[in-house]
């Protein structure tokens, strides 16, 4: 009976201790957080009742208000999203080219372009909108510019990655042919990133419709403005109408983008 007893342990003793410590710390963090947020038990208990109250005030939605106060704002929102996306194409494509080392082999330019992409992404659309309202005044222009500025980072980053992942073979062949740089771009890179490009633009357009719906909360035009007004005046039936409208538009966008994508890719 001297068969060696082979045991299997996923972690060493040290690692097991470490894992236990992490569990303990997580638990402690939850306890501390609960005490810090200071939940008021009465309010918590009251919540379902309040929720029900809100829902009854919201129902039925004030459908008659749509033509007067919502439709125009909704169209404006769609304009803001679409124009913003279009604007971002012109800004993001050059930035993406500059950010891709294989296309522009100067480190400093790559870094600069990457800095632009990161700063565009690190600021939320609402914050961009606040800044733009300060510059352009309240309204759809501020919203459009905010959408465009926020999207540079998204579109530029993804496009730059697509460019970096292209097959080097055709590029090498075109260089060996003696093609100038713009021709290599047009016939070597562009055919390869084309599907990714349209995919990215459509995806961002879809996101921008959703984002532009809330921009009105900070005065940057669109349906968010109508929502803000309704909230401030406690017109809950209008609030529910606007929320339902946004929901419907987002679903329609999703369907539309799926159809277009299937058509062109």
């Amino acid at each position: 009976m001297s068969a060696p007893t082979r045991t299997f342990q996923r972690f060493t003793r040290g690692r097991r201790l470490l894992r236990f410590a992490v569990y303990l710390l997580s638990l402690a963090a939850v306890v501390v957080s609960l005490r810090t947020v200071a939940i008021i038990p009465e309010f918590l208990a009251d919540a379902p009742h309040q929720m029900l109250d809100l829902l009854t005030r919201m129902w039925p939605p004030d459908a008659g208000h749509y033509a007067k106060g919502v439709h125009q704002a909704l169209i404006e929102t769609l304009h803001v999203a679409t124009l913003g996306t279009l604007g971002t194409v012109f800004l993001a494509v050059p930035t993406a080219l500059l950010a891709t080392r294989r296309i522009v082999p100067w480190r400093i330019l790559n870094r600069l372009a990457q800095l632009i992409l990161v700063s565009s992404r690190s600021v939320n659309t609402l914050v961009w909108a606040l800044l733009c309202v300060a510059v352009f005044g309240p309204g759809a222009v501020a919203g459009t510019v905010a959408i465009a500025l926020r999207s540079i980072g998204f579109v530029g980053k993804l496009l730059s990655e697509a460019l970096a992942e292209t097959d080097t073979g055709p590029i090498e062949a075109l260089r060996a042919i003696g093609a100038p740089w713009p021709s290599v771009l047009a016939k070597g890179y562009w055919p390869q990133v084309q599907p990714a490009f349209w995919g990215i633009i459509l995806f961002r357009w879809d996101i921008n419709v959703r984002e532009s719906a809330v921009l009105g909360l900070v005065g940057a035009g669109g349906i968010g403005m109508a929502l803000d007004t309704a909230l401030n005046l406690f017109y809950w039936d209008r609030v529910s109408l606007i929320l339902a409208t946004i929901f419907a538009v987002v679903v329609l966008m999703e369907l539309l983008v799926t159809v277009i994508r299937r058509r062109i890719l």
């Binding site: 097959d167 073979g169 055709p170 090498e172 062949a173 075109l174 060996a176 042919i177 016939k187 070597g188 055919p191 390869q192 084309q194």
Partner: peptide, 12 residues
């Protein structure tokens, strides 16, 4: 130049 992997632009 002719390449082992042809190096054509696939989508053209």
């Amino acid at each position: 130049m002719v390449f082992q992997e042809y190096n054509l632009v696939e989508r053209l």
